[in-house]
Amino acid sequence: MEVRTIKVFTTVDNINLHTQVVDMSMTYGQQFGPTYLDGADVTKIKPHNSHEGKTFYVLPNDDTLRVEAFEYYHTTDPSFLGRYMSALNHTKKWKYPQVNGLTSIKWADNNCYLATALLTLQQIELKFNPPALQDAYYRARAGEAANFCALILAYCNKTVGELGDVRETMSYLFQHANLDSCKRVLNVVCKTCGQQQTTLKGVEAVMYMGTLSYEQFKKGVQIPCTCGKQATKYLVQQESPFVMMSAPPAQYELKHGTFTCASEYTGNYQCGHYKHITSKETLYCIDGALLTKSSEYKGPITDVFYKENSYTTTIK
């Protein structure tokens, strides 16, 4: 009895394709271990004539594949690729409408935090270190965002349907971005203890939790000093293409032309909904596939993004 075979390709990165001759009487799992086709788990399936010449994702289970996976995804987590594939199996079914010149995501599976993050990423200057993220990001900007969303979920250790947080998501993504040249110098002034300067680099240099107003941050924000008295913390120097200011959701007025974009969060910790506000020729609110415009805006804002380049204080 002759062994019926077909020729397929296996890959971990969709760049390096490895030619395989597979036995049609055995499952993919018996031949390769966990195997995925377009995100779908085909591990328990036997090869079919229609699979001839198709590319299958496999887990990096030998040295060659491990090197290829690390170079593309910059992670050695053995569960990463499987999590990416199972997320992709959902995100490829989502709709990605162009809204006001940006790629958004039609609401499904509690994905409003991903839509808000995706919209924000198209408006701030950011370059990702893992080629996987950078490639998928370019495709997302062009309207094909399924891979990018699935990668975000995998890097953030999230599953489809789980509630997510924009600030946490951005923080994970910033860790995989090139923020080497970003720098922030802060000064804390206390009447009792004097003053202390701190220099922050990388992710810490672009994120701040405690106030939404970048102007206020430049002037000074009140913080408790270690001595128990009130101290003032203010920005001395900022070198970065953008800054992200966050605070627990509270009524906040966004003035046209003073910011790049913002995240609105309605609801409580267990259950809520994100919308995205962007400042173009007027203010726009993007909620999944829905767009509304207004000249002014007041609502429960939790993150505001500002364009920056270089700032030095005039406070002496």
Rank of each mutant, 00 (worst) to 15 (best):
E2I: 11
V3R: 13
V3I: 12
V3M: 11
V3D: 15
R4T: 14
R4Y: 11
T5R: 14
I6H: 06
V8C: 13
V8F: 06
T10C: 12
T10G: 04
T10Y: 11
T11V: 08
T11N: 01
D13N: 15
N14A: 13
I15C: 06
I15Y: 08
N16R: 11
N16P: 08
L17V: 13
L17C: 15
H18S: 05
T19E: 09
V22I: 10
D23W: 11
D23L: 08
D23V: 14
M24F: 11
M24Q: 14
M24W: 14
M24K: 09
Y28K: 09
Y28I: 05
G29R: 05
Q30N: 00
F32I: 15
F32R: 13
G33E: 08
G33Y: 08
T35G: 12
T35F: 09
T35L: 13
Y36T: 03
Y36H: 01
L37D: 15
A40R: 10
D41F: 06
K44V: 11
K46S: 12
K46N: 13
P47W: 08
H48T: 09
N49G: 13
N49E: 11
S50Q: 14
H51K: 04
K54T: 12
K54R: 14
T55G: 09
V58C: 10
V58T: 12
V58H: 09
V58E: 08
L59W: 15
L59K: 08
P60Q: 10
N61P: 01
T64L: 13
L65E: 08
E68I: 08
Y72D: 08
Y73I: 06
Y73M: 01
H74D: 02
P78N: 11
F80K: 01
L81F: 13
L81H: 13
G82R: 15
G82N: 14
M85P: 14
M85E: 11
S86Q: 13
A87T: 10
L88E: 05
L88Y: 14
N89G: 09
H90S: 12
T91V: 06
K92V: 09
W94I: 08
P97R: 10
P97T: 08
Q98P: 06
V99H: 12
G101V: 02
L102P: 13
T103N: 03
S104E: 12
S104A: 09
I105P: 11
K106S: 15
A108W: 07
A108D: 04
A108E: 06
N110I: 09
N111W: 06
C112V: 06
L114T: 03
L114I: 09
A117L: 00
A117K: 03
L118P: 06
T120I: 11
T120R: 06
L121M: 09
Q122V: 02
Q122H: 03
Q122F: 04
Q122C: 04
E125R: 04
E125F: 04
L126A: 06
F128G: 02
F128S: 03
P130E: 11
A132E: 06
A132D: 06
A132T: 09
L133P: 02
L133S: 03
L133K: 11
L133G: 05
Q134C: 10
Q134D: 02
Q134S: 09
D135E: 14
D135I: 08
Y138N: 15
Y138G: 14
Y138A: 14
R139Y: 09
A140K: 09
A140H: 02
A140M: 13
R141M: 10
R141V: 13
A142S: 13
E144A: 11
E144R: 07
E144Y: 12
N147S: 13
N147Q: 13
C149M: 11
A150D: 01
A150I: 04
L153G: 06
A154C: 10
Y155I: 00
Y155Q: 00
C156R: 05
N157A: 03
K158N: 02
K158V: 03
T159Q: 13
T159N: 11
V160F: 07
G161M: 06
G161H: 05
E162T: 07
E162K: 02
E162Q: 12
L163G: 03
G164M: 05
D165T: 03
R167W: 04
R167V: 00
E168Y: 06
T169Y: 07
S171R: 15
S171C: 15
Y172M: 15
Y172Q: 15
L173W: 02
Q175L: 08
Q175Y: 02
Q175H: 12
A177L: 06
N178H: 10
N178P: 04
L179P: 15
R184K: 03
V185D: 04
V185A: 03
L186N: 03
N187L: 11
N187Q: 11
V188L: 04
V189T: 14
C190I: 03
C190E: 07
K191F: 04
T192M: 03
C193G: 03
C193P: 03
C193R: 01
G194T: 02
G194D: 07
Q195S: 15
Q197W: 06
Q197I: 13
Q197P: 07
L200S: 10
L200P: 09
L200H: 15
G202S: 02
V203L: 04
E204S: 10
A205R: 01
A205Y: 00
A205W: 02
A205T: 01
V206L: 01
G210F: 13
G210E: 01
L212E: 04
L212H: 06
Y214D: 04
Y214R: 04
Y214M: 07
Y214C: 01
F217V: 09
K218Y: 03
K218F: 00
K218S: 01
K219F: 03
K219I: 07
G220V: 03
G220D: 02
G220L: 04
G220A: 03
V221P: 07
V221I: 14
V221S: 05
Q222W: 02
Q222I: 11
I223M: 06
I223A: 14
P224L: 14
P224M: 13
P224R: 15
T226Q: 14
T226W: 06
C227N: 02
C227Y: 04
C227I: 02
G228D: 02
T232W: 09
K233F: 05
K233V: 14
Y234E: 05
V236E: 00
Q237Y: 15
Q238V: 00
Q238M: 04
Q238L: 02
Q238D: 04
E239R: 08
V243K: 01
M244W: 04
M245C: 08
M245D: 02
S246N: 00
S246A: 05
A247H: 07
P248N: 03
P248V: 04
P249T: 10
P249M: 07
A250P: 00
Q251S: 10
Q251N: 09
Q251G: 03
Y252T: 13
Y252K: 02
E253W: 12
E253M: 05
E253R: 02
L254T: 06
G257S: 01
T258Q: 11
T258R: 05
T258S: 09
F259Q: 00
F259T: 01
F259C: 03
T260V: 15
C261L: 09
A262W: 04
S263G: 01
E264Y: 06
E264H: 00
E264K: 02
E264N: 04
Y265V: 00
T266R: 06
T266K: 13
G267V: 02
G267P: 01
N268D: 15
G272Q: 10
Y274E: 01
K275R: 15
H276T: 07
S279Q: 12
T282E: 10
T282R: 03
T282Y: 10
T282K: 12
L283V: 12
I286K: 00
D287N: 05
G288L: 01
A289L: 02
A289I: 01
L290W: 10
L291A: 14
T292R: 05
K293H: 15
K293T: 13
S294Q: 14
S294P: 09
S294Y: 15
S295L: 12
E296P: 07
E296H: 15
E296Q: 13
Y297Q: 02
G299H: 00
G299Q: 01
P300S: 10
P300I: 12
I301E: 01
I301K: 01
D303G: 01
D303W: 00
V304P: 03
F305A: 00
F305V: 11
F305L: 04
Y306W: 00
Y306M: 04
Y306S: 02
K307S: 12
E308Q: 07
N309A: 13
S310Q: 15
Y311W: 07
T312Q: 13
T312N: 09
T313A: 14
T314P: 06
T314E: 10
I315S: 15
I315L: 15
I315P: 15
K316C: 15
